[in-house]
Amino acid sequence: MKPQHLLAAATLVLATTAFAAGDPHDHAHAHTPLHGGVVVEVKDMDYELVAKPTVIQLHLRDHGKAADLSKATAKLTLLSGTDKQEIELKPAGDKLEATGSFKVGPGTKAVAVVTVAGKPATARFTLK
Rank of each mutant, 00 (worst) to 15 (best):
K84E: 13
H63S: 05
K71N: 13
L49S: 03
L78E: 01
T77W: 01
A98R: 04
A72L: 04
K71I: 03
K71G: 06
L60E: 07
T73C: 01
T54Y: 10
H59A: 09
Y47V: 04
L69K: 02
T82V: 12
L69G: 00
Y47S: 05
A92N: 14
V50G: 00
V40W: 05
A74K: 01
Y47M: 07
K43Q: 15
K52W: 02
V40S: 01
M45P: 00
A67K: 09
K65F: 09
T54S: 15
P53Y: 05
V50S: 00
Y47H: 14
H59R: 08
K90G: 06
D94S: 12
T73E: 07
Q57R: 15
V40Y: 05
A74R: 00
S70R: 13
D83R: 12
E41I: 07
L76H: 02
E88Y: 09
K65M: 08
Q85S: 10
T82E: 11
S70V: 08
L69W: 03
E48M: 08
E88P: 03
E86S: 12
L96N: 01
S80P: 00
K75Y: 09
A72G: 04
L79D: 08
V55C: 10
A66Q: 10
D62I: 09
D94F: 05
L96G: 02
A51Q: 02
H63W: 02
A72T: 02
T82N: 13
E86C: 06
H59G: 04
A98F: 04
H63I: 04
M45I: 12
E97F: 08
V42H: 08
L76Q: 01
L79C: 05
D83P: 01
L60T: 09
T73D: 06
K71A: 15
A51K: 01
R61C: 09
A51W: 07
I87H: 05
A67F: 00
E88T: 15
A66T: 14
L60V: 15
E86N: 13
D83E: 13
K52G: 08
S80V: 03
K52N: 11
E86D: 15
A98C: 11
L58A: 03
Y47C: 07
A67M: 08
P53H: 07
H59S: 09
A51E: 01
A92H: 12
G93M: 04
K71T: 15
L76N: 00
A98V: 07
E86G: 05
A51F: 10
T77F: 01
M45D: 10
G81M: 10
L58I: 04
R61N: 13
D68P: 09
L89W: 03
A51P: 03
V50L: 12
A92E: 13
E86A: 13
A98D: 06
K95E: 10
D46L: 09
P91W: 01
T77L: 12
D46I: 06
D68N: 15
S80T: 14
K84I: 15
K90H: 11
D94A: 11
K84S: 14
V42E: 10
K52C: 05
L96V: 07
Q85I: 11
K65Q: 13
T73S: 14
G81N: 11
K52P: 00
L96S: 03
